Every structure is written in C-alpha cells, then in structure tokens.
Computed example of a mutant assay.
Amino acid sequence: MLTPYLLRAPAPTADGLRLFCFHHAGGSAAAFATWQRGLGPRAEVLPVQLPGREGRLSEPRATDMTRLVDELVRELGDLFRPPFAFYGHSMGALLAYAVAQRLRDRGAALPTLLAVGAYPAPDRPGLMTDVPRMAADDLAALLVRIGGMSEMLLDYPEWRDAAIDLVRDDLRVCHSYRHVPDAPLPTPITAFVGDRDPLMTPDDATPWAGHTTSGFELQPIPGGHFFLRDSAPVLLGALRRSLAAAGARRGVAHAAPGERD
C-alpha cells in the first residue's frame, strides 16, 4: 500500500539506488519533479511529500521535528533498504539528518550518502529564527527577496497568507529541533551551499564535517538559497558524482561517474 509520504510506490525490484528527497520549508515534493530525468535511470528519485500541501492539503501540518521523524520512520522505514540515499534542501536537510540519526539509533540500515543543501550544520544556529516575531508583510517581502515566494502572490492576499502560514508551520519544525551532541554518523555527507545564499555562508555548512566519520565534501553551487531550482543541472551533476563516490566506497554501482553536467 502506498504511503501518503510518497507520490508513487517505489519500483518493486530495487537493484539500483533509491534517492529520498526532502523539500524545503513552504515547499513540496514538486521541487524535485525534474530530478528523475536529470539523474537518469541509475537512481530512483522518491520525493517525500509532507502533510498540509498539494494532494495532502486537508491534512494537519507537522510542527514538531521529533513527531515528524517518528512518523517518517514508521511510514517509510520498510523502504529504507540498501542502497538508498537522502537529499534534503533547507528544512529538508535538517529533517534528512534527523531521520538518519533515528535510523542509526535503531540499528537500521543507513543511507549510502547524506546530501544536504542550503542549511547550516545541526550544531549551528538554524535559519530564519526571527520568523515567529515577523509581521506577515515583512515575512512576505523576505520570502520574495530570497526566492521562496512569487512576487505575484503579493497581489492575492488570500494565497499570500496561505503560503506564509505554510512557511511558519514548516519553520516550527526546524525551530523545534534541539541538537544533542552525539557520535557522528558512519555515512558520508556532502553539503551543498549557494555561493550567493543570503541566509548562510559556506562557513555555516563546513561544520557538517563533524557529523560524519565517512568523509565530507563541501560543494558550492551557483545561486542563492534555492539553487536547486536556479542551477539544477550543476547541482544534479555534482550530486551524481557524490552518489558515485559514496557507492564506490560500499561497492555499490548506482551512478555513472563519467556522466557530465
């Protein structure tokens, strides 16, 4: 039976890699709509759809990281069979890391690669922590400025407010996260950061290196906070290479290392 957290059921025979993708705050699984074509047949792209958006619009949105991780592991745990990997963007990066931590704590299989984009390391201050105190107009202006909301929505107050409410709830998930120093994950981590991201710098992403014992790579990508949209070919090319390198460490052939952007 298909879980509501996935748009479609995974292929019944998973000889290749499953790449679970976690979207940003205010976003949806649609952020990864072109990734299957971009990554090719060696990886099965499985965007994770959180409640309260698109086809799950009528469902209550998550606002607590621990509860959301519990739900994701319960719903998707049987599908986390090697080889698999995680990519998370912004809020999704922190969520992917928290899910990997939970799997490790349960003695379950871990992802071949944890790829995180546009979010500081979990022991660093999170993003947009002042949002709970921001007026709707100010938050809307900020979202437009960083590329997280279309300027057209400003002309439609009802839609604008709905988008703002979604962002506020998603950020509650991030802000509910409390980092507890723990052993690093035995999983390689690649951290992607936009070279013009107004919310963070490479220095905020570099400490991700302390959360793995299996290799770390910092990958600057042209663009701002939403480089996954603005520089998709560059990002997907870099991700293919990271997946290939991680697979080679474990003897898993799931990405073509000779592929070019």
Rank of each mutant, 00 (worst) to 15 (best):
T13E: 15
A121C: 09
S58E: 14
Q101N: 13
L113V: 08
Y177C: 12
L39S: 01
T34S: 13
L46Y: 07
T34L: 11
M200T: 13
G52A: 10
A256R: 11
M134I: 11
P12F: 05
L68S: 02
M200A: 15
A248N: 10
L103F: 09
T212M: 10
G27I: 07
F22P: 02
A30R: 15
A93H: 03
V69T: 04
P82R: 08
R67V: 12
R56K: 12
L185K: 02
H23Y: 07
V193N: 00
V48T: 10
A14K: 14
A248R: 14
E158I: 02
V173T: 06
L113P: 07
S231V: 04
A96G: 06
T13G: 14
D137S: 10
R196W: 07
P207A: 06
A93W: 01
A232L: 02
I189H: 03
P181A: 14
V193W: 00
A256W: 08
Y177R: 06
A141C: 01
A108V: 00
T66P: 00
F80Y: 12
E259V: 11
D138E: 14
P82M: 08
P47F: 03
D204H: 14
L228R: 03
L17C: 15
G27C: 08
G92S: 11
H211E: 05
Q36W: 01
P198E: 10
Y5W: 14
V73C: 03
R249K: 14
D203C: 00
L142Q: 14
M134E: 15
R42G: 05
A96D: 04
Y156D: 15
P186D: 13
E217Q: 12
A62N: 06
R160L: 12
T129G: 12
A96Q: 04
F32L: 01
F192Y: 15
D203E: 11
D64S: 00
P4I: 11
A244N: 06
Y97N: 03
D197A: 12
E158K: 05
E217T: 14
F226Y: 15
P125V: 07
L185A: 09
A100I: 04
R8M: 12
M152L: 15
D15W: 01
G38Y: 05
